[in-house]
């Protein structure tokens, strides 16, 4: 063992360790701007990745399609039922929307307040997935040039999947919800509420349980009406994620770590694997 680590080797190893720990420590904090070599490397790689991700996705999709054939009949039946309900809901929605506009006029909302809930959904192609299972990052093909900014929410067709973590010229990295963790100071907690009980329910999602694949919602007040089976949406109170985006379904509710508040396990609606297209949510500028 002593022979293996000669003095010189051990010395170099230690120097290396110190340098790398310093580098990690420096890049660990929330950096708002990437420096140009980073951007250059990242953009060139993502440009090349974009050629590979598509064919891979199609090839994988072929097998998926064969599997889908077997379930398509069942699915069709369910969809028809949903469609009937959808028509009914649309009629109701139109009516309520009209009423909403009328009320806003009556209460003399400013133009800015009226626009506040009109989010734009920008479609983005996924061009890369981090091969490292602890680093839950995907790369999308929209960047600074397309007006993407840090901390914008990213959703799939099923629900919230993450937020923009870092932006470079033509691509940006998305931190998936499976990467949120309250201890490391690299993720942002999500203020959440229950759909249909927006006024009464409140909680914070700041952890993902890797073992069960569920999000953990904490700091739920004792009087909260949250129940199993409820749909959890973003509340918009945290100022990072816009309100009303569906996150998942409550699977269980139990007393929290300190016995004062409750915590709930939430099964996310969206899968975090095999993503093809995602949507970046752009919120109109505040003020």
């Amino acid at each position: 063992m002593f022979k293996l680590f000669g003095n010189k080797r051990l010395f170099i190893l230690l120097i290396g360790l110190i340098c790398f720990i310093a580098l990690m420590g420096l890049t660990l904090e929330q950096r708002s701007k990437l420096i140009w070599p980073e951007k250059f490397v990242k953009d060139s790689i993502s440009w090349m990745q974009s050629f590979l991700y598509k064919p891979a996705e199609y090839a994988a999709g072929l097998f998926q399609d064969i599997h889908d054939l077997t379930v398509v009949y069942q699915e069709n039946k369910v969809l028809k039922q949903t469609l009937a309900r959808y028509a009914k809901d649309t009629a109701k929605l139109n009516e309520m929307e009209a009423e909403n506009i009328r009320l806003k006029e009556a209460l003399s909302f400013t133009e800015q307040q009226k626009q506040a809930n009109q989010y734009t959904y920008r479609i983005a192609q996924v061009i890369g997935t981090s091969p490292d299972p602890y680093n839950n990052t995907i790369v999308i093909n929209l960047g600074e040039r397309n007006g993407i900014k840090e901390n914008m929410a990213v959703v799939s067709t099923d629900g919230l999947i993450g937020r923009i973590d870092s932006v470079s010229g033509f691509s940006s990295n998305v931190q998936l919800l499976s990467g949120i963790e309250d201890s490391g100071n690299v993720s942002k907690a999500i203020a959440a509420t229950v759909k249909g009980k927006e006024g009464d329910s409140y909680g914070i999602i700041e952890n993902y349980d890797l073992k069960s694949g569920m999000l953990i919602m904490t700091k739920i007040p004792q009087t909260d009406p949250l129940q199993e089976g409820d749909t959890v949406v973003t509340s918009g109170l945290g100022q990072i994620f816009p309100g009303g985006i569906e996150i998942g379904k409550v699977v269980s509710k139990s007393i929290g770590d300190f016995g004062i508040t409750y915590k709930a396990m939430i099964a996310p609606f969206s899968s975090f694997h095999h993503l093809r297209e995602v949507f970046v949510v752009e919120v109109p500028e505040q003020g």
Binding site: M24, T27, K42, T137
Partner: peptide, 21 residues
Amino acid sequence: LLQDFAYYGPMIGTNSFAMGL
């Protein structure tokens, strides 16, 4: 380092150090 740059999530240097060593 290339991997750390391309999928810059939490920090830079992890893969570089681990792979090199």
